[in-house]
Nucleic acid binder design. Structure first.
Lengths: 106, 106
DNA sequence: AGCTAACATCGTCACTCAACGATAAGACAT
DNA sequence: ATGTCTTATCGTTGAGTGACGATGTTAGCT
């Protein structure tokens, strides 16, 4: 029976598996806003960055920046660790590389 | 006066210029949905593809697929040329490469 | 304990998106 | 010209997004 029935991956029309398609879409969604691209670049440039510094640089309110950071963090592209009363954000290189790999595989 | 005033690009905190940030965000937005990633991959695998073939493969209605194609076309990732009563879609390699370049530059 | 500073979360509003069925538009056949 | 096939567009509905101010929360300071 299973000799004739194609599996899910057989039906997938590309080199990316279906879970990878979804992963790629999720990562793209996280970067689908200019502010989040900019935040990511700030974090790449400076190795790490206090949240407040990002707020200062961007023309957005603190709560909006925090929301963008939450989305980036949720996508796994960014990590935030508590440093006393502040939160220090930095990129998550493995996930960023995964993203690059998925894009490069297109 | 302009010797002291920083230009827009000077204020940008990354290696990507501000227009490129927006371009990257737009391209990511176009791929921020699994269906569109899948469509793009179908078009990469088969060099070109009749619209109807895509509809057949995907679990979405014709109108929904058409809308996804419109978004991909609007982003410049995909081209569609009329072939009699059908429309033949194919990827736009320069734009796809531009996208890859922007991602790789992160 | 109480205060302040830094950040997250909540509540809200306007706006956009995804999905579909229904309908329009265009090119070919008869 | 009429009909048919293929694709695009319209209209609508429900869900999600982006933005903000206001409020909650947590860590340090006095």
């Amino acid at each position: 029976m299973d000799t004739l029935k194609p599996s899910c991956t057989d039906l997938c029309t590309s080199e990316l598996t279906q879970p990878n398609q979804q992963a790629l879409a999720s990562l793209c969604k996280a970067l689908a806003h200019p502010a989040r691209v900019q935040i990511l670049q700030i974090l790449i440039e400076r190795k790490s960055c206090i949240c407040g510094e990002i707020v200062e640089v961007m023309p957005l309110s603190q709560s909006t920046v925090s929301e963008h950071l939450r989305i980036l963090k949720q996508a796994g592209l960014v990590q935030g660790e508590v440093d006393g009363p502040r939160v220090c954000y930095c990129i998550n290189p493995p996930m960023l590389n995964h993203f690059k790999t998925l894009i490069a595989a297109l």
